[in-house]
């Protein structure tokens, strides 16, 4: 379905992926699109691999993105980016958070964390942007705002008015945390 845009969010449980996909879905709804979002809760939240599918367009059927039709891989962790890369269509875009989280086999010294991931991904998909999300989140004042920093970076490759992003953030984020998150979003927007 050419008129549907498919964004796959990937990362590790605890990184704030579900909130990010909530905000993104809300933006597309505010923009007047049909939207579906899909993810698995439960086991995956215990530090496991997490994905969230967001699809929007005039009419969306499946909430799972058809395999190989991901337009944008929006990833919160290096290794997870690589894991879901086969689902990206040729010429697709990648946004990677420059953050490595050791999976159990690496933490136990049984396996090595793959090297040169960003370079390999970039070679395969030229439209790849690497974001220093954690540094920017700390600059905003809280390491937990890394998901909103990344949303800022994502907003640069999507065609939605800035007001829609701000409205969605205001709706989804508790008031006491809003200022720090708006700052995080701005810092993300500055990543080109």
């Amino acid at each position: 379905m050419a008129d549907v845009t498919n964004i796959l969010l990937a990362g590790v449980g605890g990184q704030g992926i579900l909130l990010a996909s909530e905000v993104l879905s809300e933006v597309t709804l505010l923009a007047g699109f049909d939207v579906k979002k899909n993810e698995i809760h439960g086991m995956s939240q215990r530090g496991g691999s997490v994905v969230s599918h967001v699809r929007y367009g005039d009419k969306v059927y499946s909430s799972i993105i058809p395999e190989g039709e991901v337009d944008i891989l929006f990833s919160f962790e290096m290794l997870e980016t690589r894991r879901y890369l086969p689902l990206l269509r040729a010429g697709g875009k990648v946004i990677i958070n420059n953050w490595k989280i050791a999976p159990p086999s690496v933490a136990l010294g049984k396996q090595a964390y793959p090297e040169n991931l960003a370079e390999d991904i970039q070679a395969q998909f030229p439209d790849t942007r690497v974001v220093d999300g954690l540094d920017l989140a700390l600059e905003a004042g809280n390491s937990k705002t890394v998901n909103v920093v990344l949303l800022g970076a994502l907003s640069n490759v999507l065609d939605f008015d800035r007001e829609l992003w701000l409205a969605a953030l205001k709706k989804m984020i508790p008031e006491r945390l809003l200022d720090i998150n708006l700052k995080a979003f701005e810092l993300g927007c500055q990543v080109k």
Partner: peptide, 8 residues
């Protein structure tokens, strides 16, 4: 790739 199963 190294798997990332859930953990306590």
């Amino acid at each position: 790739l190294p798997q990332r199963p859930p953990n306590m």
